[in-house]
Amino acid sequence: MATLTKDQAEDRTTTTAGPAARIEHVSKSFTGPAGGQLVLDDISLDVAPGEFVTLLGASGCGKSTLLNLVAGLDRPSAGAITTQGRPALMFQEHALFPWLTAGKNIELALRLRGVAKAERRPEAERLLDLVRLSGAYGKRVHELSGGMRQRVALARALAQDSQLLLMDEPFAALDAITRDVLHDELTRIWRETRLSVLFVTHNVREAVRLAERVVLLSSRPGRIAREWTVGIEQPRRIEDAAVAELSIEITEELRGEIRRHGQH
């Protein structure tokens, strides 16, 4: 999927019926010692094929919970989620397996997908090449920097050949310089592969920098508060005036949502 030619990518989107992910009236509550707690309340959201959507919200908005539901790691209490096949998921922590080299981590994903043995190594090298880590095949996870680990994790996620990539604050633990570079990298790879991306973050600038559409969730319970379509042309920079302008507008809205919680 990762290095599909443009024709193949277009072919894929035309044969795909409907959105890459459809979230319909999804609610989720967890039963705790204090009774049931509603975390997500009636969320409906479609991610179109090839679309980049960020889910934005303060803590307690259930954005990671929603991502887990879409990933199939948990079941919604009400509502339905449809995806085209099993989505790929990237975590805040790289979640690479430390007993395998970078290359073997990717090959494990290929193997679990059923790729024939002879094709795994070249495919893994191709994916590493895509995230510009051609030399890292034989490296152990602890020999890689934080940014490199996340790029290997991205390559491993791409190895799943899924049309939907879920990202749970994947750059939150990185330093600002590395994060900035990885934003450029993710945008480049997204544009090359035409994947659908659902990206969770609490960083407004990051959301605006990356997405075609920003969805703001309110907290406790998580509801969709507002949506923005980001019309700024890619490639963008996080410093762009247009990015800053929209970020201010969204931040105001986000702060309003947060303030409501201090009022009762």
């Binding site: 510009r132 880590l133 920097s145 590395t178 450029d184």
Partner: peptide, 15 residues
């Protein structure tokens, strides 16, 4: 540009 930047970062960060 990006590739060069990334290569530099990787070199600086590698343990």
């Amino acid at each position: 540009d990006l590739a060069g930047l990334e290569a530099g970062l990787d070199a600086l960060d590698t343990v």
